[in-house]
Amino acid sequence: MRKFILVVLLIGILLAVDVNCQKRRKRVRHERRKEAPVVPFLEQPADSETETETDVFQLLEKDEAAENARADLEAKLKALEEAEGVEQNEIDNLEEPQEDPCATKRCGPGRECIQTAQGRARCVCMKACPDEDDNRRRVCSNYNETWSSDCEVYRSRCLCDEGSDDCTNPINKHLHIDYYGECREMPSCSEEEMGDFPRRMRDWLFNVMRELADRRELSPHFFQLERQAETSSNESSRATVAAVWKWCDLDGHPHDRVVSRHELFPIRAPLMAMEHCIAPFLDECDVDNDHRITLKEWGHCLQLPTDELEEKCDDVRNANENYAATAGDEEV
C-alpha cells in the first residue's frame, strides 16, 4: 500500500511540474511578444536579448529542480521497495514451519512413520533394520530361532501381519522374543516345579509391586491399594492386587483389555535365563490359544479366585494422568 501511494504521488508531481513548465514557457513567450517592440531581428535591443537569456536560464533551473525532485522520489521509492523486501524476509523467517505429522505419531515395534501424499501420518513396516554385528544383540524367538536383533523380529512380524509379499513365513505373524541371546537348550520344567510356580509367581509380583511403592514409582491409585494389601492378613487379597496391577501394566498400546503374547515380553525375556518354567507357565495362561490373555485367564493361571479380580486399568490410567497434571501445576 505504501508503495502504491508513493507511485501515485510521484506521477502526480511529475505531471504538475510538466504542466507548470509549459505554462511558464507560454507566459514568457506571451510577455515577450507583448512588451518587445516589433523590429527586425537584427535591430532588437541588447537588453531584450539579455532578458530572454535570463528567462531561458530560469526555465532551465526550474526544469533541473523538477528533475532533482523526481530523482529524489525515485530514490525514496527504491529505498521503500528494499525496506519492504527486508521486512517480508523477516516475516517469512518468523513463520512457523509446517508441523511434521509424524512428530506426534507413535508406531509400534518394527514400524516407522511416513507422511502420506495427503500430509497425514501413517505407520508402516520398516524398510530395513540397522545392521548388527554385535552378538550380544541377538535374540531367541518363541519358535526357538536366533535373530540378529529384536528389530528384525518385530519387522518380520509386521510384514506377516500386514500380509506383505516380503513375509518369509506366515507363522511369523505370531512371532515374538522369548529371551535375549542366542537360542540354547533349556532345561525342562518338571511337573512338581510347574505345580509350585503360580505361588512363586504371585509372591514375585507382589514383591516387585512393593519395591515400586517404596520408590514412589506406582500410580497413586495402586500405591494406596498396595499399602492396604501390605497390612492385610489375607494373602489372596495381596496376590489379587498384584495380579491386576501387572496385567494392566502389560496391556500396552493399544489398551484393548487383553495382553498379547508379545506384550508378555517384559516379564518373559528377563526371567527365561533364571526361571525355565516361565515359558510353559505363560503358554498355559492362554487357555484358548488365541495368543491373547484376558484378565480371567491371567487370574486362573495364577490360581486366584476370578470373582475377586476387578479390571481397574482405566482407574489406574486416569490416576496417572491426574497425577501428572497435578505435578505439572506444582512445578509451574
Rank of each mutant, 00 (worst) to 15 (best):
V124P: 04
L225A: 03
D286Q: 08
W247Q: 02
G108Q: 07
L264R: 08
K78M: 14
Y323K: 15
V7R: 05
D134W: 01
V139K: 02
L250V: 01
A239D: 06
C248Q: 02
A117F: 05
R155Q: 13
E226N: 09
D286M: 10
T168V: 12
Q58L: 12
S188M: 11
S164I: 09
D314C: 09
D72H: 11
L264H: 02
N289Q: 08
A79N: 09
L9P: 01
D161Q: 12
R136W: 05
R120I: 07
T52A: 08
K246E: 06
E96N: 03
R106A: 13
G195T: 13
V7C: 09
C102F: 10
T146K: 09
H255A: 05
C248V: 08
P40A: 09
D196L: 13
L59F: 12
E84Y: 06
R29C: 08
S156L: 09
A69W: 02
E217Q: 10
D290S: 15
W245I: 10
H221S: 11
P266S: 05
A36T: 11
N93Q: 14
M209F: 09
F4C: 10
C167D: 10
E90I: 04
S232H: 04
K246T: 10
I171R: 15
D18W: 07
W298H: 08
E99A: 15
D134A: 11
C140H: 01
Q44C: 10
C158K: 01
Q88H: 11
M201H: 04
E112K: 07
E284R: 15
N322G: 09
E152S: 15
A243P: 00
A16F: 07
H262P: 04
N135L: 15
R215H: 13
E81C: 03
Q88G: 06
E84K: 12
A69P: 02
V86M: 03
G163S: 10
E230L: 15
A327Y: 08
L6M: 08
R138F: 02
F197P: 00
V39F: 01
D286E: 06
Q303L: 15
T306D: 00
N169L: 03
W247P: 00
R257M: 05
M201V: 11
G85N: 14
K76T: 14
C140L: 07
A327N: 05
C160G: 00
E132G: 04
V19T: 05
S149M: 05
E311L: 11
E162I: 11
D165K: 08
L225E: 02
F197T: 00
C277G: 01
P40Q: 07
V86S: 01
M209C: 07
E311M: 07
V39R: 04
E211R: 13
H255P: 05
E53W: 08
L77M: 10
S188K: 09
C125M: 03
I171Q: 14
E95C: 07
E275Q: 12
V244H: 00
A75K: 13
L6E: 01
R202F: 03
E297L: 03
D55C: 11
Q88T: 11
P198M: 05
I114V: 14
A79T: 13
P170Y: 14
A324R: 14
A16L: 14
M194E: 03
L10R: 02
E284P: 08
D283V: 03
C125L: 04
K26L: 07
N169Q: 04
